[in-house]
């Protein structure tokens, strides 16, 4: 097996697409992430949302809330957009593209959380949005510092040189952590009361895959 970048980090390289020095590449690692992003995007596209059980207070009676598919059209759309942004983030071979995809994931996550009408959830979405916006600073800052010190943003060119400054790597990680904070805000917003499981799951998928990808980038460059 030929290891990508001659580094024992992510297994064999499968194939790559060359655009000049920007090379989107699939290693075993990124291909696995890609596959999972596709699977969850398809689940979000084709699953019907679950029906929430509600108990009538003070009695034994309970009923299942009916949700019409058109009520969740926006949430489904944003979830698919989020999945697509995740796909981009896990395969791109360019650090700036990665940061842009990360920011897009942030925006779509805001959308998924905010498409619930509850005041509580909207509040959480707003707070999360502010964190995601602030996280743009270290995210873009990290990428900019890498470009300024090494003269390139291509992971393919940077791999194994160790030229990227450690501060830039830390900033990049901080940025991704900020963009991928959404699951915690979901927990905070008691999203148990909101419906649309396949879409809410997308928030989780995107932030975890983003985190996994940034760990790989930081180790490789």
């Amino acid at each position: 097996m030929i290891r990508v970048f001659d580094q024992g980090i992510e297994g064999a390289g499968l194939f790559m697409i060359e655009f000049g020095d920007i090379v989107p590449y699939f290693s075993v690692y990124t291909a696995t992430l890609f596959t999972f992003a596709i699977i969850f995007t398809l689940l979000a596209t084709f699953s019907i949302p679950e029906k929430q059980m509600d108990i009538i207070f003070g009695g034994d009676a309970y009923y299942a809330k009916e949700i019409k598919p058109q009520d969740l059209r926006f949430q489904r759309f944003v979830a698919i957009a989020c999945g697509t942004a995740t796909l981009g983030a896990v395969v791109t071979g360019d650090i700036f593209n990665f940061t842009l995809f990360a920011a897009m994931i942030g925006i779509t996550n805001i959308g998924i959380v905010a498409s619930s009408r509850s005041h509580h959830v909207l509040n959480a979405a707003y707070q999360y949005g502010i964190v995601a916006m602030i996280a743009c600073v270290p995210l873009f800052g990290g990428a900019a510092m890498i470009l300024a010190t090494t003269g390139t943003l291509s992971i393919w060119s940077l791999a194994g040189i160790g030229a990227a400054p450690i501060l830039a790597k830390i900033l990049l990680l901080l940025g991704v952590m900020g963009e991928g904070m959404a699951p915690f805000y979901i927990g905070k917003a008691e999203i148990t009361r909101a419906q649309g499981a396949p879409f809410i799951l997308m928030v989780h998928v995107s932030s975890l895959l983003l985190f996994l990808r940034v760990v790989e980038i930081i180790l490789v460059i």
């Binding site: 690692y29 969850f40 059980m53 799951l201 996994l212």
Partner: peptide, 28 residues
């Protein structure tokens, strides 16, 4: 003898599965 990082990734995806298992039914 593959990558330990990939094992870490699979372990994290297990978390998504836990999450999805819980969310997929309507039960509180």
């Amino acid at each position: 003898g593959g990558s330990l990082l990939l094992l870490f990734a699979l372990y994290l995806i297990h978390k998504i599965i836990e999450h999805g298992t819980g969310l997929s039914s309507g039960s509180q």
